[in-house]
Design a protein around this nucleic acid. Sequence first.
DNA 1: TAAAATATGTCAATATGGCTGACATAAATT
DNA 2: AATTTATGTCAGCCATATTGACATATTTTA
Lengths: 177, 177
Amino acid sequence: MADINLQEKSDGPESGATPLPDDPERRQALELIELLFFAYRDFISDPDEILSGYGFGRAHHRVVHFVGRNPGMRVAQLLEILRITKQSLGRVLRELIETDFVYQREGDRDRRQRLLYLTDKGIALMHDLQEPQIARVRRAIEQAGPEAERLYRDVLFHLIDAGDRANVELLISKADE
Amino acid sequence: MADINLQEKSDGPESGATPLPDDPERRQALELIELLFFAYRDFISDPDEILSGYGFGRAHHRVVHFVGRNPGMRVAQLLEILRITKQSLGRVLRELIETDFVYQREGDRDRRQRLLYLTDKGIALMHDLQEPQIARVRRAIEQAGPEAERLYRDVLFHLIDAGDRANVELLISKADE
DNA sequence: TAAAATATGTCAATATGGCTGACATAAATT
DNA sequence: AATTTATGTCAGCCATATTGACATATTTTA
């Protein structure tokens, strides 16, 4: 990260006007907000690198990940999870199908549905992408002590919009069969 | 979040091939990875909405946030934090300066530097953007119990690339004056 | 059965936010 | 005086998202 050291704020004349309210709770929250930014930034850096080798981007990653974790999921479900439009997903999905990472099957009960599955090639890619992230998470949990897993999980869970929590929980636990 | 319920996986014929290694530690890590995705997704949704009102995007948000937290920071430091190129930052910064959210001042000791500051208008925007995020973080910490703040912070910190942690810590704590 | 709703796909146009490479200027350092 | 540093800018490109309109097949409903 080279050198990020800030120059001493010679908060000289005409400085930035109204200072922040110096509320310690606010400060604490701001620090956590920034930590989340940096953690997320580094967290996606490993997959990004792998993906660039395939000519793929983050959108492809998300599709491979969620389809891999939930074989047979519907397109509409994927749209809901990713919160993007059909048109945006369209190209990415087409590319993944054309390059044989993903395939579709007609739904049994509803033949309008195109259920999504990873091919073996897709599964291999999924694992490649998961490896560094799993290692990173495990390391972090380990280094933060025994209670860390539960509390970290709890905080993340409560950062999610209240109305979505039940669905997310269902999705995550279901994905583990 | 509408309805994300997955259809029962009628993991019929020709299903997705090689199943995942059913390692509970792996499973746990995958769930945390997904929680981080969902938490981050919702976490940036509030600012996104506010920004769209100004015709700004996430890049503008990041600039306003970090310049606001570190008045007088240099362009090079901002680039290091955001991990983007000079050219990418250029447009965003120009827009923020033209619309009077950010201004630049020559460095005192080094007159090549263009130190960055928020105008009053910029500070107001920063506060608007911070409000929902601070509320969200506080709520989550509260609901996750007394130890949550420390451990959540610790995990996030260790998710950051080891080589960057010292700099991030410095940046974050310095930002609180 | 006919009409309506649903699941998906696609076309075209557009915006944003990244990227690379090349080059320019001013100021500081060697 | 030469080099390095801090910043800016031009031009072109790519990835990922957007909206709106429309098409098709299938299921559900009236």
